[in-house]
Design a protein around this nucleic acid. Structure first.
Lengths: 194, 194
DNA sequence: TTGATATTAGCACCTGCTTCTAAAAGTATA
DNA sequence: TATACTTTTAGAAGCAGGTGCTAATATCAA
């Protein structure tokens, strides 16, 4: 990377970018990259108020450590607060701007679906379940910040098929409903789910 | 925290737990916590093969740094490779183990739904669209590693309601299908979507 | 009391810095 | 061209949070 003819300003701008999308580079590696001395990099960092490698790594780790937990929970999508296997379940999901489309404040449909689907699956007493058929209906748009409360009810069990009805509310108002037919995968590992 | 009468084994077990849910503690803090010397903590870490603070932080940071990026991609859910507005669209999604349930290799239903839903919305020529009603059917389980190809077709347009039919395939085999009724939100900002 | 296990102590060394001082090198201006 | 200014480089001392090593104590069981 021959970046010889960079001015101080150009180099510092690039430095910001570089560290932005790879915070794991130490001063020596940065010095190599820009073909300057370590001291120059240090001066640049000072002027730009970029913290040292270890602080940067720590920041990344801390930022995401809080997130990790919510991502693990995201696997469930929503927190299950009540559950009686094969009977009913309740899941709560706080909506954030991440769950909305780009600039708008409307929560994406697949998020609402995912919560309902996950809850339906959690409510069923089977190691793995797969959604066979679902009938869904979005009744009202959900806005970022609103709390989604999904309530599942197992309505019928026939062999390895279980019927679950999920209704999702925002402050008592029904915003979504879905009817799932879940098929236990234990028996039918391979094909022919339906 | 008076943990005086811990045996070596008990302390080491607790140490693992402690570091597990707070990897940001250094040896001195751990020594205080367990009321032993720093050297003892070091010995414990060696025996348990727990890396030093900086390595732990780095690991946390790196793990999540990768995750953050895949979450950004998740916002799109699938890559749109062909699109004729208000007519049809095709989206491709490579499945990874992240999209599967815990230990199994079966892709979660909400992922497949999200791809289809996102594609349906992208196919519609409106700034914001919201899924009104959808009829969906999962035909075959999808295994981690398989590539999902979703094809959307706009079948009818009536006022601000647009009907989109999405079929998802794995190697020509249909694994999922859904019928969406999408409602443009431009006109009906507030309520009464349906 | 003797051994074995567990714990503590001390020292040299490492990385990736910070802070400081100081010397060059490059550039513009009078 | 000499002067002044900015920019870059260099070197030394110190710090945090360790590793790796040796050696001295404690503790406890037979």
């Amino acid at each position: 990377m021959a970046k010889r003819w960079l001015t101080k300003r150009e180099r510092q701008k690039l430095l910001l970018d570089t560290i932005e999308n790879d915070p794991f580079l130490n001063d020596e590696e940065l010095a190599d990259k820009f073909d300057v001395s370590i001291q120059t990099i240090r001066l640049d960092r000072m002027e730009l108020k970029i913290p040292e490698l270890r602080e940067r790594i720590k920041a990344v780790a801390e930022q995401n450590y809080a997130k990790v937990r919510s991502i693990d929970i995201e696997e469930i999508v929503g927190e299950i607060v009540d559950l009686e296997l094969d009977k009913r379940g309740i899941s709560i999901l706080e909506t954030t701007s991440k769950m909305a489309f780009g600039k708008t404040k409307v929560i994406r449909g697949d998020i609402i679906f995912a919560q309902a689907n996950s809850l339906a699956i959690a409510t069923i007493d089977a190691k793995v379940a797969l959604t066979g058929v679902a009938n869904i209906k979005y009744k009202l748009p959900v806005i970022v910040g609103q709390t989604l409360v999904a309530k599942a009810e197992v309505t019928r069990i026939r062999g390895n098929k279980k019927f679950v009805f999920v209704r999702t509310y925002v402050k008592q108002q029904e915003v979504f409903r879905a009817k799932f037919i879940l098929v236990s995968l234990d028996d039918e590992e391979k094909h022919g789910i339906l």
